[in-house]
């Protein structure tokens, strides 16, 4: 218990003193997770709309696959991205490995199933007549899909929040494809991992507390958007 208290105090000390390295790591965590979430949302929400409204052969199987991928192990994604972007790999020439971009790619892959699946779920909850209504009132197909998405906005924002949560807590693939490089690809989660390795348990806990606080702040903001 004593350790937890020390950790809590240390966390506040780090925040208040605005320890530069911790700030940098925190902002990087936020930036990478936010970028991943934005990219994934921009893709998954419209695609979710398309999947929901159009029938095609294998639709049911696709939805099953998406839901199975919710529990995609992060090490698998990390390994996949590593093998793809390593210099010996097909996309090696881009030199993306061990950069924040690689972490973003990994996180986007990880949260896409969640965002897609939850968006589909959200859209299923919308009254079927809404689309007919929208079309009848003169909307194009895309406008109608967008209108339904807007009707489901509460649940869709919830999906985005969930995606963000998943992204910011990512550690396995982030270490493997980011390299946890100080000042470049180190984020809160990977820093925690390192400090545990070094035996700095209280510092690791403190970073963990900061991570939770960060998630809390982001959540509060997202909730405000959700409520309006």
């Amino acid at each position: 218990m004593g350790e937890l208290w020390i950790a809590l105090l240390k966390a506040f000390e780090l925040i208040l003193k605005r320890d530069p390295e911790v700030m940098q790591i925190t902002l990087r965590s936020l930036r990478i997770a936010a970028t991943s979430t934005c990219i994934a949302s921009l893709v998954c929400i419209p695609v979710g709309g398309l999947i929901h409204f159009y029938s095609f052969p294998g639709k049911r199987i696709l939805i099953n696959i998406i839901q199975t991928l919710y529990s995609l192990p992060t090490v698998c994604v990390g390994l996949l991205v590593f093998v793809l972007f390593s210099r010996s790999g097909p996309f090696g020439g881009l030199g993306i490995l061990f950069t924040p971009t690689a972490i973003v790619i990994g996180e986007v892959i990880l949260i896409t199933p969640i965002l897609l699946g939850l968006t589909l779920s959200a859209l299923s909850g919308v009254n079927i007549s809404i689309r007919d209504n929208a079309l009848s009132l003169g909307a194009t197909e895309f406008q109608a899909i967008w209108t339904v998405i807007r009707e489901a906005r509460f649940s869709v924002v919830a999906a985005v929040i969930m995606g963000f949560g998943r992204a910011i807590s990512e550690v396995g693939s982030a270490i493997m494809i980011g390299g946890n490089i100080k000042g470049f690809t180190r984020v809160l989660t990977t820093a925690i991992s390192l400090e545990i390795q070094r035996g700095e348990l209280e510092f690791a806990l403190a970073l963990g507390i900061i991570l939770i606080l960060l998630s809390l702040v982001v959540n509060i903001i997202m909730n405000m958007i959700q409520q309006r």
Partner: peptide
Amino acid sequence: RRRMAMVFQKPVVFNA
């Protein structure tokens, strides 16, 4: 379609 309009039996309005 834009030159026609329909009022449904149980109209559903948007959540707005």
